[in-house]
Simulated scan of single mutants.
Amino acid sequence: MKLYYSPGSLGLAPHIALREAGLDFNLVRVDFRTKTTVEGDYFKVTPKGFVPALKLDDGEVITEAPVVLQWIADHSPERKLMPASDSPEHYRALEWLNYVATDIYKGYHTLFSPFLDVGSKLRYIEGYLGPRLSYLDEHLSKNEHLLESGFSVADAFLFNILSWSPRVRVDPSGFTALQQFIARMSERPSVQASLKAEGISLK
């Protein structure tokens, strides 16, 4: 199994999840600029050209971070990375995965746009991201993880996005619970190993 990634991209969440799951995998780094890997043309892996992509041993390729995360959880049920599919909390987990993928990821991704000036981005942070981060902060002030049952792939996904804050001028200092969440996640061995493997420093 191969995980195609680029350091600091959306590949970090499934990278963490794979380590949490204890699954065997190889990392293949994608050059965003050239869309190539040591194997050659990345478009031959996925015509989308984006990461992450998880290539299974049978050659099947899965893309889109929330789906890759769901696959990892489904194929390591003993690690309880997602609640059982017949449980009410399973749908809470899907809610969080979708919330992070839409409201949070899209919010952060917009801030990388070269078509917006600094002033526009700061107003966007205040008007769009601010209320959503406040919602997360309120929830995490009462819960150590997104789910009451504990760590899930949704936490890895959220941590992945929040780790971009310094790169896009999002100041988390007003969100105490979010800062504590990031600190807790940073202490997980799977997170530390993933950051080290990708050569990422959060400082």
Rank of each mutant, 00 (worst) to 15 (best):
R92N: 14
R92V: 15
R92K: 14
A93I: 01
A93M: 04
E95P: 01
E95W: 14
E95V: 04
W96Q: 02
W96F: 11
L97F: 03
L97R: 01
N98I: 02
N98H: 13
V100E: 03
A101D: 06
T102H: 05
T102F: 05
D103G: 04
D103P: 06
I104Q: 01
I104D: 02
Y105T: 02
Y105A: 08
K106F: 11
G107W: 07
Y108Q: 00
Y108S: 02
H109D: 13
H109T: 10
T110C: 08
T110N: 04
T110D: 07
T110A: 12
L111G: 00
L111F: 06
F112H: 06
F112N: 03
S113F: 08
P114S: 08
F115D: 12
F115V: 08
F115Q: 11
F115R: 09
L116K: 13
D117L: 05
D117F: 14
V118Q: 12
G119F: 03
S120G: 11
S120K: 14
S120T: 15
K121S: 05
L122D: 13
L122A: 14
R123Q: 14
Y124M: 04
I125L: 06
G127P: 03
G127T: 11
L129C: 08
G130A: 15
G130L: 07
P131L: 09
P131H: 12
P131M: 14
R132P: 05
R132W: 13
R132C: 07
L133A: 09
L133T: 04
S134P: 10
